[in-house]
Structure formats: structure tokens, C-alpha cells
């Protein structure tokens, strides 16, 4: 198949997938939740600002608290994006295989790998737009109310989008093997493990227990998405905010470049495995 033909087919599949994804109610609920959170976030920030105005305070502490709150907003935004990614995409393979919708597609002159890649591109586009909106919204609100801005916002955005794409490869792989419900529970469970791992590594910064560090590293290897977030948080926080140390944003045990490379390799390997499984399986 020529490159031109191949890209034509991918565009068709990605386009219809994007339209299908945009019709998922979960996407709109997640967007609604993000708007609600932004509103609460704005009110909280405003209250904090008012409170600060009422008493003498060093601008340094004030700045720290405000940028800390910005990180809380971004973290919520990140969690919501990952969960939304998992819930909207979990059904695309398992559901279409289960219902037989896939039959009329898989018998067209298009390879199974192209079906998977096209679908992945469609969901990637949706996820990136979602993250851009909620992430941009959070920063805009924080800036409007308090005047703080994150460091390296673009890096942060790219890392959060990357984290969601890692989660997307997980749902695609699970979708080639399990039914929708099983795959969904599995994917959320893995995300929970990653979440746990992130906190373990934080705690390890204090407890100095080598075992906890090891456990945290192992969980990050099983599901590296959370370590991508922690890297994003590190990139975005203001140089001094790192001293707010016991939080998901503290710069104890910052995931290294190697952790990001690992996450990329993890996602690639999982996606290739998904293609392999999807090609092998009966429809």
C-alpha cells in the first residue's frame, strides 16, 4: 500500500474515531467537571488573596502559597485528563469487537495495524485538545486572580499530554484482550498503582527507607504515567516552591530523563503489542 493511500486510510479512521469520541458523554462530563473545578479553584484563590491582604506577610511566602495552589489546580487537571482518557477510549476496541461494528471495517482494504493507528490518532487529537483547554484554563485563572505563572508551562503541557498518551496505549492494549468492563477496571487499577508509586517515592524522600524507594520505582516501572506527571510538576514549579516539600509537587526524587525515556519505550512497546494482539485475534 502506498504512503499516500496509507495516510488517506488513517485520516478516514482517525476522523470517524474523533467524531465518535467527541460524542462520548464522558468527555463532556469531564469537561463540565473541569469547568466546575476551575470555578472552585478561582474562588479559593480569590479567598486566599483576600485573606493575604488582611495581614502583613512576606511576598515570598505569599508567592509560595499561591504557586502551590496553582500546582494543586494543575494536578487536579492532570488527574481528570488521565481518567477521561481512560474512560473515553476503553470502549473503542473492546466495544466494537463485542458489538460486531468492527467487522464491516476490518473487511475493508485496510490492515488491522492501520485501524489501530487511525483510532489512536483520533483519540490523541481529542486528548490533546482536552488537556490544552483544561490546562490553559487553570493557568489563565491562576494568573488572572493571583498573577502567578508556572515556569516552563509548555513543557508541563507537553508532559501532561504525553502522560495521557501513555495511558491511551494502556487502554488500547487492554482493549485488544479484554471486554470493556474488564479492561476499564484494569486500566484504572494500573493508574491507581502508579498513583501509589508516586506517593511512595515522595515519602521515601523523608523516611530514607531504601525499600520504599525500591517499591516506588517498581510501581513506576509497572505504570510510568504518574512519574511523567511528577516530572511535569517539577518543570512547572517556581524554583523556590520545591520547598513545599511534602506534596505531589515536591522536588524530592524527581523523575530523571531516563524515566521519561522509559515511559516512551513502555508506551511504544505496549502499542506494538496491541497491534500484534489485534492482528492475531479473531473478530
Amino acid at each position: 500500500m502506498s504512503v499516500h493511500e496509507s495516510s488517506r486510510v488513517l485520516r478516514i479512521v482517525a476522523g470517524v474515531t474523533l467524531r465518535e469520541a467527541a460524542r462520548r458523554r464522558i468527555l463532556w462530563v469531564a469537561l463540565g467537571a473541569a469547568v466546575l473545578l476551575l470555578a472552585i479553584f478561582a474562588v479559593a484563590l480569590r479567598l486566599q488573596v483576600l485573606e493575604f491582604e488582611g495581614r502583613p506577610m512576606s511576598p515570598f511566602v505569599r508567592y509560595q502559597v499561591e504557586s502551590g495552589m496553582l500546582m494543586i489546580g494543575l494536578y487536579t487537571c492532570d488527574l481528570l485528563a488521565v481518567v477521561m482518557t481512560i474512560l473515553t477510549s476503553i470502549d473503542t476496541l473492546a466495544g466494537e469487537i463485542g458489538s460486531g461494528t468492527i467487522l464491516a471495517i476490518a473487511t475493508k482494504p485496510i490492515t488491522r495495524a492501520q485501524i489501530l493507528i487511525g483510532k489512536f490518532l483520533g483519540f490523541s487529537a481529542m486528548v490533546i485538545v482536552y488537556v490544552a483547554l483544561t490546562f490553559g484554563g487553570t493557568i489563565a485563572v491562576a494568573h488572572a486572580v493571583t498573577g502567578v505563572l508556572p515556569e516552563h508551562a509548555l513543557r508541563g503541557f507537553l508532559l501532561i499530554a504525553f502522560e495521557c498518551l501513555v495511558a491511551l496505549t494502556v487502554t488500547f492494549y487492554l482493549g485488544t484482550r479484554f471486554s470493556t468492563i474488564t479492561a476499564g477496571v484494569f486500566a484504572l487499577g494500573l493508574q491507581g498503582v502508579a498513583f501509589m508509586g508516586g506517593w511512595l517515592e515522595q515519602v521515601s524522600g523523608f523516611s530514607q527507607s531504601q525499600h520504599i524507594v525500591t517499591l516506588g520505582v517498581i510501581t513506576s516501572l509497572i505504570m510510568p504515567s504518574e512519574s511523567v506527571w511528577r516530572r511535569a510538576a517539577f518543570e512547572m514549579q517556581t524554583p523556590l516552591a520545591g520547598s513545599l516539600s511534602f506534596s505531589p509537587f515536591a522536588n524530592v526524587s524527581i523523575p530523571s530523563g531516563a524515566a521519561l525515556v522509559y515511559a516512551a519505550l513502555f508506551a511504544t512497546a505496549l502499542f506494538l503489542a496491541a497491534i500484534y494482539r489485534f492482528r492475531k485475534r479473531d473478530l
Binding site: M1, I12, V16, R19, E20, R23, S99, G100, T101, L103, A104, T107, K108, P109, I110, T111
Partner: peptide, 29 residues
Amino acid sequence: PSVRRDIGFLPEDFRFYDWLTATELLVLH
């Protein structure tokens, strides 16, 4: 895959995205 250009298939229980109109479905296929 290439030979499927010349193959048509009606599955036993035909289903598709239900938000498409009949014409959109046919154009897509």
C-alpha cells in the same frame, strides 16, 4: 488486505455508529 477492494461483506448482525445518517454511513464505507 489489498484484495478486499474487490470484496463486499454483509455481517450476520450489521451494526455501526448510530449517530451517522444512512448516507454518511455509506459514504464512509
